[in-house]
Amino acid sequence: MSLINIDEMTQRFGGLQAVSKFDMELQGGELVGLIGPNGAGKTTIFNLVSGFYQPSEGSITFAGKDTRGLKPHQVTAMGVARTFQNIRLWHDMSVLDNIRIAQHYRLGYSVFDSFLRTKRYRKGEERIDSIAWEMLEAMDLKEFAHELPSNLPYGLQRRVEIARAMSTKPKLLLLDEPAAGLNSADVEGLITLVRWIHDNFDITIWMIEHQMKVVMSLCQYIKCIDFGATIAEGTPEQIQNDPTVIKAYLGDDNI
């Protein structure tokens, strides 16, 4: 059974066809890329996969289950986590709290347990606490646990966001332009981090990225879209030499 199977997914906004007949099948364990010029519909695809939009047509099957009609938090609970193009951390809460709250779906206690501080409450809090610290440790963020994200440099905020997504224990991690706004040293760090995550966790990573260095060095397989439609797919080498991709990015020769 494949991990995720997207079949002829189409999304329209009014008259605009943002995504048309997008197909994708991942078996699990891959590290794939999604590229395309600005406004091609890449983030829309992520929004559809994470349940934020409902596809106008076509289907998304995650781990054998149709995700249409599910709310984003339900999709996340099934094992899809994502980061955002422009960092969306909860800026007035500590890094630790950010990571704890992201485990909301498996707290395992109800509101009354939180009033009465029952055994279930203590167990739940202990469990997510230990997972949160494990994640901070693994992501090398331990010393910033009690900082507010807004006080951290941009590169670290990215890492916190990835850690927050990882703490939902996803099977599929969607990274939306993780290298956007990072300097070259941070980009090197990011490449190492993503590779490390991919090697050390049982996880599939699907990333949108503009920086070719990141995509080409990380991804095993790349899909390129323009105006919502897939224009090329293949290994990094194939994509780099594909004339339609070059045309989409750089325009025609005969301008």
């Binding site: 934020f52 709310k71 984003p72 938090h73 996340t76 609970a77 909860w90 709250i101 909301h104 939902t168």
Partner: peptide, 8 residues
Amino acid sequence: AAEIMSVN
């Protein structure tokens, strides 16, 4: 972000 990070 809350909705996507599994908060109902």
